[in-house]
Design a protein around this nucleic acid. Structure first.
Lengths: 345, 345
DNA sequence: TTGAAAGCGCTAACAC
DNA sequence: GTGTTAGCGCTTTCAA
């Protein structure tokens, strides 16, 4: 039953034409007669002819495929960004090959190699949180395959064919903490993730600077590094509530940790936001389902995906007149104020 | 700066060997001398040689790539399944090419063609909810590319190279509704999605049969078709609460709709679960963050992805002795009972 | 307007 | 053990 697929030359033979003419006809080349084009199209349809991309790509040296490498494919953030990437890539006629590193630097290296072997025309990548050695990206650089980092970026990169899209995490955190201060909070805690990742480092710095700018002291007792999930947030806040002067606000670097903390706070009989205000980061879907609804920072995830693809396109088609070097894009976060932090309505 | 990548014959030339020997050496073929292998490996490393998959695939007639087509890449369910697929595919040495149909049948068709053109060795697909015409899948069937449907399946398919992985949605719904009845609920509402999709039809049937089996009448006033999101659930329940005898339990075909309904119920001053019990379907992450926590049905999403890939592998390597025809896999759901439905602790 | 020929980079028969 | 040869299916000069 092995129904071999029809090839270009099958179509050519049946029509007593040469493969080249058929190729041109299907490509819509203008110097093929309308009559021939029509004959070709008709038979191609009938035979369910589908061009072999592999062969075309090999010949052309262009695969029309983009590679994407994310730490994981689950959760809220990455799927949204992937959505943006997929939509924008599709518009530009690219297929997308997706891999996940599972936060493992070894996997990341392997996946970069796989993508390179698949002759992708560019790679969009968000780093695994274990990655501290970046040599595997040299491969892409050397072979001149454009690289766009998004969200979790390699900060000390340099070179002509690397760029990045990030959110202004610092600004988001700064605004959020300023908001908490304006609500009358003075003992503001911060639950942070691994700080060798730019996102967490920047959010933390935004926290510190907002406090300082408003004349508040930084108390290291109010800063905890924890797993950025429900359980981690719960654990961290449990400790802090034992302090002689427990925090009157919690800013967690992501929403899950914030939600976990909020549950513990309420379980202690404390009211949110009146005793302790709570805020997260990411604007996940569930933030309107907690009680009270969670104040957070929206990251414009799809925008990030779209920007990344557009940046890549610019790198693939460099504008010759103005010196359109790869640039870095910094997206603006958006503060989403909800009940969990609103003490003064 | 265009650093052309090193090819097999570059390595061969530099070593005064033939390309075939180099190819065999790198493939670990046993009839190449250890000495040669070593020389080859060393130089390949040094030149950062990366095999061109496109060329290899074209030559071999095997692309080592699987195609995946999902309605959308966001939300809870599909990313989880994709995770399972990605992990299992990677184990088997496959790369994965992912497309989303955006619930649009036209897109679906286009994407299937794209996948076929990319010479994927098999396709995993979950249908768009607008798909009623299945002719675009004929393409794959004709060319003998195995097709595995998951979750949202084409039900009237037949043929040698199509199979499916589904959850026993009927059973999940049946068990869940039985549980509500055991909790003393008698006026159980159902919020359902478009019933031409197998998942919603089956969940609804499970609901009806559970009621009947327990001697309860089916009241169509308690059945609403709505958008399966927070807003849709909220709207639907708002109407029902106006009934002379409003429901004392709500089973929504997904968690978001359940959560939306729960918010409205509480806003009406009714207690969950004592006045109205609430249950959803899918066990999304946020179901432990609502108040009370939401009773739901776990779908084992990763398992579905893993099963789908395994099924595909069996279809690619048919077992010659026993008549290992493609089979359908039906996964068992798992009831997750939480506070939102627990009236009798 | 069409055809002939070459070749993208790799693998696999078949030789030696 | 290693080399020679042919060819996967397509595109693209170049020539007619």
């Amino acid at each position: 039953m092995q129904n071999r697929r029809a090839s270009l030359s099958d179509v050519a033979k049946a029509l007593q034409l040469s493969p080249s003419t058929v190729s041109r006809a299907l490509a819509g080349h203008k110097d093929v007669s309308e009559a021939t084009k029509e004959r070709v199209r008709l038979l191609a349809d009938e035979l369910h002819y589908q061009p072999n991309q592999l062969a075309a790509a090999l010949r052309r040296g262009r695969s029309n495929t983009l590679g994407v490498l994310v730490p994981h494919i689950t959760g809220h953030f990455f799927p949204k960004v992937l959505d943006g990437i997929a939509v924008e890539a599709s518009k530009a006629g690219f297929s997308v090959m997706i891999f996940q590193s599972n936060e493992d630097s070894k996997q990341e290296k392997k996946n970069i190699e796989l993508l390179m072997n698949s002759q992708v025309e560019g790679i969009l990548v968000s780093l695994a949180n274990t990655t501290t050695d970046f040599s595997h990206f040299e491969l892409a650089r050397q072979q001149n395959v454009p690289l766009v980092f998004f969200d979790r970026v390699m900060e000390d990169f340099r070179g002509s064919n690397v760029s990045a899209v990030i959110l202004d995490d610092y600004l988001g955190a700064y605004q959020l903490v300023s908001h908490l201060i304006e609500q009358g909070c003075t003992r503001i805690a911060h639950l942070t993730g691994l700080r060798h990742l730019n996102i967490h480092r920047n959010r933390h710095q935004g926290y510190r600077d907002a406090l300082t700018a408003h004349g508040l002291e930084i108390n290291e007792d109010y800063v905890a590094q924890c797993e950025m999930n429900q359980y981690g947030g719960a654990q961290a806040i449990t400790e802090m509530l034992k302090l002689p002067a427990p925090p009157d606000a919690v800013f967690a670097s992501n929403d899950l940790a914030a939600a976990g903390a909020m549950q513990v706070i309420k379980a202690h009989g404390l009211r949110v936001p009146h005793d302790v205000a709570v805020a997260g980061f990411s604007n996940e879907a569930f933030t309107t389902l907690t009680e009270p609804m969670l104040t957070t920072v929206d990251q414009g995830c799809e925008t990030m995906g779209i920007s990344a693809v557009r940046l890549l396109q610019k790198m693939l088609n460099p504008n010759p007149d103005r010196l359109a070097q790869p640039r870095n894009v910094v997206l603006k976060p958006k503060l989403i104020i909800r009940e969990s932090s609103l003490r003064r309505p």
